[in-house]
Design a protein around this nucleic acid. Structure first.
Length: 395
DNA sequence: TAGACGTGGTC
DNA sequence: TGACCAAGTCT
């Protein structure tokens, strides 16, 4: 497996060694950082933040609820996803699955269809599985115990802490992207946050107001999302400005330190829209795990070096579905970016020639009418293909 | 442990 | 266009 970390072979050794020394030294300092925050400062931070929140806190749909299920749904949707994006999905979800029981008894295709477009589809699969687990093992009641909550699929320490504090006002700390960024600036963290996870958890725990855990955690995330922005933070409006180490040193725009990443690869893909004599289209459902697991798609695969697009499509369809096709006109080219690679989808109309399609490298295959495609969960890149098909039919 | 895992928005 | 970022978890 290739590392995506950028490497400098000539200097790697000494750089790594010196970085390691620096990190170790800073981690030792950070280990005691909560001790270096006097209780008077901690009290000041709590009260100024809660006061700010009472004036400037956001009015968000899930904050009007104390239903652990609704709050859980919001916490899962909000993973790596902004509030603005989540709100319409949250509303639709609770309309479709108003209770934990209705979610547990739904089928996965229905669940994925409601999640369609939100991304990170493992979140939906895990939410669904966890609901079934709660019904079968916890009498349908969301657990109030932190360890119990964290044992559910898709719920890590931050999500569990977020749910238990918001739903039950339990003093469970959180460490999401907002809290990490605010803390990195508050203490002028000299390493990327990923290198200081344990000390950051200690800080989150030390600062959490045991008298108002729900409001405190919510306030902290609001501060990160509306004031302590990733770029150009609005320090003039920040209730923590007097205590912020980064602000006092004028380095708030340099923190948190950036994580090193290498560029992401690009893949060229050939995709087939296969028609049969009845005018139906062949689609397949991806395996339940991994990228876009459980979602439907138009079949295809990666173009090999020196291979033409039509050759690729014909070969992939033979390998994956065991049928012969004739590759026809190009329908559309779709460029799409996933979290860790780019793809270019070269989509061609194809005609089924011979053979019964087999689900060799997928979970299921189906001949469907163009008008019925809307009822299946498709990933974003494939929706553009469907749009192109409809447009071609109408135009 | 760092890479896999989506999508939309900004610069 | 490409890089970076956003309420993380799992392996």
């Amino acid at each position: 497996m290739k590392s995506r970390l950028r490497s400098h072979p000539m200097r790697q050794q000494s750089n790594q060694a010196s970085l390691r020394q620096t990190v170790d030294r800073e981690l030792i300092r950070m280990d005691s950082v909560s001790d270096r925050l006097p209780s008077s400062v901690i009290f000041a931070l709590r009260s100024t933040l809660l006061n700010w929140y009472s004036q400037q806190g956001r009015d968000l749909p899930w904050r009007r609820s104390r239903d652990p299920y609704a709050i859980w749904v919001s916490e899962i949707m909000l993973q790596q996803t902004q509030v603005k994006t989540v709100i319409p999905y949250y509303d639709r979800w609770l309309t479709q699955f108003p209770t934990l029981q209705t979610l547990a008894s739904a089928d996965q295709q229905q669940v994925l269809k409601v999640w369609q477009g939100l991304g990170y589809y493992a979140r939906a699969r895990n939410l669904h599985r966890a609901a079934q687990e709660i019904v079968s093992q916890h009498n349908g009641i969301f657990p109030t115990d932190l360890q119990m909550a964290m044992s559910l699929p898709g719920i890590g320490r931050t999500t569990a802490g977020g749910i238990l504090s918001a739903a039950f006002d339990q003093p469970t700390p959180i460490l999401d992207g907002n809290v990490k960024r605010v803390l990195a600036r508050l203490v002028a963290l000299p390493v990327p946050t990923s290198k200081a996870i344990a000390p950051l958890w200690q800080l989150s725990e030390a600062l959490l107001d045991p008298a108002h855990p729900r409001d405190f955690n919510q306030a902290w995330m609001d501060l990160g999302a509306t004031i302590c922005l990733p770029r150009n933070p609005l320090c003039d409006r920040c209730p923590w400005q007097p205590h912020c180490s980064a602000y006092n040193q004028g380095i708030q725009n340099q923190l948190p330190m950036t994580e090193t990443r290498s560029p992401i690869p690009r893949k060229i893909i050939g995709v087939a829209v296969i028609w049969n004599d009845a005018g139906q289209i062949l689609i397949d459902r991806r395996k339940p795990e991994g990228l876009l697991g459980g979602m439907w798609e138009f079949p295809g695969g990666k173009v090999e070096p020196g291979e033409t697009i039509p050759d690729c499509i014909q070969r992939e369809i033979q390998e994956e579905l065991g049928i012969e096709i004739e590759v026809g006109d190009r329908l559309i080219v779709v460029d799409h970016t996933y979290s860790h690679f780019h793809v270019t989808l070269n989509v061609h109309h194809c005609q089924h020639i011979s053979g019964e399609p087999q689900a060799i490298e997928c979970d299921e295959i189906r001949w469907v009418e163009l008008a019925d495609l809307d009822s299946y969960p498709f990933p974003k890149a494939n929706l553009q293909i469907i749009e192109a098909l409809k447009k071609e039919k109408d135009g």
